[in-house]
Design a protein around this nucleic acid. Structure first.
Length: 479
RNA sequence: GUCCCGUUGGUCUAGUGGUUAGGACUCAGGAUUUUCAUUCCUGCAGCAGGGGUUCGACUCCCCUACGGGAUACCA
């Protein structure tokens, strides 16, 4: 049991699930499932200024809808809770005291104004900002007195002044960072909440996290964390820093350049299978050329050893291609079920379910995202919007003869099926001398509103006899 | 600025001390299809640059360039 792998996804609830976060969550999940370990969700809500209502609910809902589930976390509990950091402040307090006692941290009484002044002076001298350590060597007595007097304070990390911190990252191997680049970071804020650095280390230890798998933006904070582990006398988790997800200009993937929220992609009709598959391949790849993976296959093939080192551009073109793959591939009933939401949103109702299925089948071949299905299906539900150019085609003598012929024959037909339609198509050629581009486009325009689209038998079947007759009649009258 | 990390076609990537550097997306052309879509075929295009090490480097080492990240009482 003691060598069980335990990994965590530790988002801060800022309102929505970022696709980068999804990938981080996914890799953690895959690693846990691959190794038979545990996957833990921990909410990093230590910033009271960034509190967003319902953010946690949204997060859980989104992850759930992608079938990523946790072994421990806010919803299912676990023996290492609570899993909200905001409910663990007493714990952090205790460990901060321990750090101070061990001379690894110190109280700092500098105010925001003091820091601002410090910043300005350093800027004048052309230096970059760092805390100058003026409270670092206050005597214990003085510090205790000032605290007793009710002075506001924070607790800072007492980082070494010289040397460098060397560690091994599972993705990047050996990394060295000089201590002089590491600031006396605040660990405990004046509101009593911890900063990320403290909470993260304390919780990862207490929750027995064996592998920290997170974004590369944390790489340069690792020395602070290792310093804390060391001060506490704890064994650090293994570090694994993932390459970043990038905008097409190669900057860190951000909201400014398009959608980054998983829920937005879902709303737009990207399938969960696509999202999982696509994001999994941004920074990881198994040997070989396989690139369509379902969740189980990912679990089977996943390995931290095959993580990439360099950032990956989130390419919409390829996402679209992959979504089409899944639209074609997934079970038709499943697609139909999911399409219902979009039909409902558009206010479309089909009486016969077999027609729904038929419609979804032709639609899935021609759309990129599922939300396009309502526009694709519109001609079956609403009045047709025919372009002026297409109307001209309908008004030709040729078209009028053709439409009348079809109207009469369908009117008198007992059953209308593919067989009949094909016969009529042939007879149109033989008896009327109308074929090819004089045959198909006018019929399709009259019935579907556009010269391009599904096969005629399909259109006619979904429409039903009554609507077919109405539409043919209308174009004959409107000549 | 400083520190850290990275660099195989436009994008995602496979790959080896000796390969015609492989696949996918995109794009272009073609075939099939009544149309559209699908599918299939073909094509365009790549090891950032310079030094080493080596009989031989895309592959190992160093430098440069470029890109990104970090430099908060945010995570």
């Amino acid at each position: 049991m003691s060598n069980e792998i335990r990994v965590r996804f530790a988002p801060s609830p800022t309102g929505y699930l970022h696709v980068g976060s999804l990938r981080t969550a996914l890799y953690n999940y895959l690693y846990a499932r691959k190794t038979g370990g545990k996957f833990i969700l921990r909410i990093e809500d230590t910033d009271q200024n960034r509190f967003v209502k319902d953010a946690v609910e949204n997060l859980l809902k989104t992850l759930q809808s992608l079938n990523i589930d946790f072994d421990e976390g806010p919803q299912n509990g676990g023996e290492f809770g609570p899993y909200f950091q905001s409910e663990r402040t007493d714990i952090y307090r205790k460990y901060v005291d321990e750090l101070i006692a061990k001379d690894a941290a110190y109280p700092c009484f500098c105010t925001k104004e003091d820091l601002q002044k410090m910043r300005e002076q350093q800027k004048k001298r052309g230096e970059d900002f760092h805390y100058d350590g003026r409270c670092r060597d206050l005597s214990t007595k003085e510090a205790e007195e000032r605290i007793a007097n009710g002075e506001k304070y924070v607790v800072r990390l007492k980082v070494p002044k010289n040397g460098e911190c060397t560690f091994y990252d599972l993705v990047r191997d050996k990394v060295s960072i000089p201590w002089k680049m590491v600031d006396d970071q605040v660990l405990l804020k004046s509101d009593g909440f911890p900063t990320y650095h403290l909470a993260n280390v304390v919780d990862d230890h207490l929750m027995r996290i064996t592998h920290v798998i997170r974004g590369e933006e944390w790489l340069s904070s690792v020395p602070k964390h290792l310093f804390l582990y060391d001060a506490f006398g704890w064994k650090p988790s293994k570090m694994c820093h993932l390459p970043l997800l990038l905008n097409s200009d190669k900057s860190k993937l951000s909201k400014r350049q398009g959608d980054v929220a998983v829920e937005d992609f879902l709303k737009k009709g990207y399938l969960k299978e696509t999202l999982i598959n696509f994001v999994a391949l941004l920074g990881w790849h198994a040997k070989g050329n396989k690139e369509i993976y379902d969740l189980n296959e990912l679990i089977k093939d996943f390995s931290l050893k095959r993580l990439n080192k360099s950032g990956a551009v989130f390419d919409l073109d390829k996402l679209n291609w992959m979504n089409k793959q899944y639209l074609h591939k997934l079970d038709i009933d499943e697609i139909a079920k999911r399409a219902k939401t979009f039909f409902q949103e558009a206010g479309y109702h089909l009486e016969k379910t077999e027609h729904l299925k038929e419609l979804v089948e032709v639609a899935r071949q021609r759309i990129t995202t599922l939300d396009e299905i309502s526009a694709f299906a519109a001609p079956f539900f609403k009045g047709l919007e025919i372009s002026e150019n297409d109307r001209k085609i309908l008004r030709t003598d040729n078209s009028q003869i053709l439409l009348k012929f079809w109207l009469e024959n369908i009117q008198s037909a007992k059953t209308i099926d593919e067989n009949l339609i094909n016969k009529l198509l042939k007879r149109s050629g033989k008896e009327l001398g109308i074929k090819g581009k004089h045959l198909y486009p006018p019929l399709r325009i009259a019935l579907y509103g556009k010269p391009h689209g599904p096969e005629l038998p399909t259109i006619i079947d979904i429409l039903g006899k009554e609507k077919v007759l109405q539409r043919l009649e209308k174009q004959i009258k409107e000549k």
